[in-house]
C-alpha cells in the first residue's frame, strides 16, 4: 500500500512529531511495507467470524463506587516541569477568540 510523504507528515503533525524531508521519505516506504504486511490478513476467509472485541477472552471488570485516597498535591505535581498555585503550568492556551 502506497503511503505518501504528505500522509506521513499529517500523522506526524497529529502526534506532535517533527520530521525532515528525508525522514518523511524513509518512513513513507517503511509504513507502506508495514501496511502491506498487515494486508495479508485480507486473504483469510472470515465469512461468519464475529469481529474480535479484545485479545483476552474476558469481559466486564468493574470497581465499586468507593472513594480511594488520591495523591497529595505536592506528589501530583512532582514530575511537572513547572507549576503554580497547585496547578500544572503550561504554555498559554488561547481559547475561542
Amino acid at each position: 500500500m502506497k503511503i505518501t510523504t504528505d500522509q506521513v507528515l499529517h500523522v506526524a503533525r497529529l502526534a506532535r512529531l517533527e520530521f525532515t524531508a528525508e525522514e518523511a521519505e524513509k518512513f513513507s516506504g517503511q509504513m507502506g511495507a508495514i501496511l502491506d504486511y498487515v494486508e495479508k490478513l485480507n486473504e483469510l476467509d472470515l465469512e461468519g467470524v464475529a469481529p474480535m472485541a479484545h485479545v483476552h477472552d474476558v469481559v466486564n471488570a468493574f470497581r465499586e463506587d468507593e472513594v480511594r485516597p488520591s495523591f497529595a498535591n505536592e506528589r501530583a505535581l512532582k514530575n511537572a516541569p513547572d507549576s503554580e498555585d497547585g496547578c500544572f503550568k503550561v504554555a498559554k492556551i488561547i481559547e475561542g477568540a
Partner: peptide, 27 residues
C-alpha cells in the same frame, strides 16, 4: 453524580483545591 471518577477511585466532589483529587490513572 457518582462518588468516584469513571476509571479510578478519586473523589468527584466539586470545589476542592486544584489537583488534590488525582491519581496515576487520571493523571
Amino acid at each position: 453524580n457518582t462518588n468516584t471518577k469513571i476509571f479510578c477511585g478519586c473523589s468527584t466532589s466539586f470545589g476542592s483545591d486544584p489537583n488534590t483529587q488525582v491519581c496515576p490513572v487520571c493523571l
